[in-house]
Simulated assay, not measured.
Amino acid sequence: MAEIEIEGVDERDSSWEVGPPGPGVGPRFRVYLHSSGAASTHGATWAYDVTGADVLQVIDWAQRQAGDRLTYAVALVYDDRERERLEPGHGRGLVWLVGMDGNTTALDAGEASALHRMLHRRTQPVGIPSGDTMPHGVPDPFNDGTSQRPR
């Protein structure tokens, strides 16, 4: 298992932030859904970007799409303007928040643990309070028949 560290910090050490979610405002999350096997997260991948929601709503949405057959991962999409300036087309990156790319082969204990937890969430989903669920009416491709889902 990866070593976990927790340390106190001065909350004033950050110099910028992105506002709360709203139409056209707030963070961009990327959800990966994988047609995983019983003991492996490898498989076909569907990716969706979600804006206007907070991370709990995004996790709720991802879990509803994944059900008990797919695995999911959630990342924060980060656009690095300086990197884009230096390497056009390479400024966008991901910060993994839940899980990781399911088609990655674990290189260390931390990655192996993340992949194992992704498999475990199919039967033991993350608890989301009712006030933090994704609102009704958003696209629901894996539950409304608009996406080709593995059987």
Rank of each mutant, 00 (worst) to 15 (best):
M1T: 08
A2L: 03
A2I: 02
E3K: 13
E3P: 09
I4A: 12
E5L: 11
E5R: 07
I6P: 01
E7L: 13
E7S: 14
G8L: 10
V9P: 05
E11C: 01
R12I: 09
S15I: 15
W16E: 09
W16A: 13
V18K: 12
P21E: 01
G22F: 06
G24T: 09
V25H: 03
G26Q: 01
R30K: 10
V31I: 10
L33A: 14
H34S: 15
A38P: 15
A39K: 13
T41S: 01
G43I: 02
T45P: 00
T45D: 01
T45N: 00
T45M: 12
A47M: 06
A47V: 11
A47C: 06
D49C: 10
V50R: 00
T51H: 04
T51G: 02
V55Q: 05
V55E: 07
L56V: 05
V58C: 07
V58N: 13
A62D: 04
Q63V: 11
R64T: 03
D68T: 14
D68E: 14
R69H: 14
L70M: 15
L76P: 00
V77A: 06
V77T: 15
D79M: 11
R81Q: 13
E82S: 10
R83L: 13
R83P: 01
E84R: 10
P88A: 06
H90M: 04
G91P: 11
G93Y: 07
L94S: 12
V95Q: 07
V95H: 06
W96T: 03
W96F: 09
L97C: 10
L97Q: 04
V98F: 04
T104W: 07
D108N: 15
E111Y: 09
A112G: 10
A112P: 00
A112M: 06
A114Q: 09
L115W: 00
H116R: 15
M118L: 00
L119S: 04
L119P: 00
L119N: 03
L119F: 01
H120F: 02
R122V: 08
P125Y: 11
V126E: 02
S130Y: 03
S130I: 02
D132Y: 03
D132C: 03
H136Y: 00
G137A: 00
P141I: 06
P141W: 00
N143H: 07
D144R: 08
D144S: 07
T146F: 01
S147C: 09
S147Q: 15
S147G: 05
Q148P: 00
Q148H: 01
R149M: 02
P150K: 07
P150N: 10
P150G: 11
R151L: 13
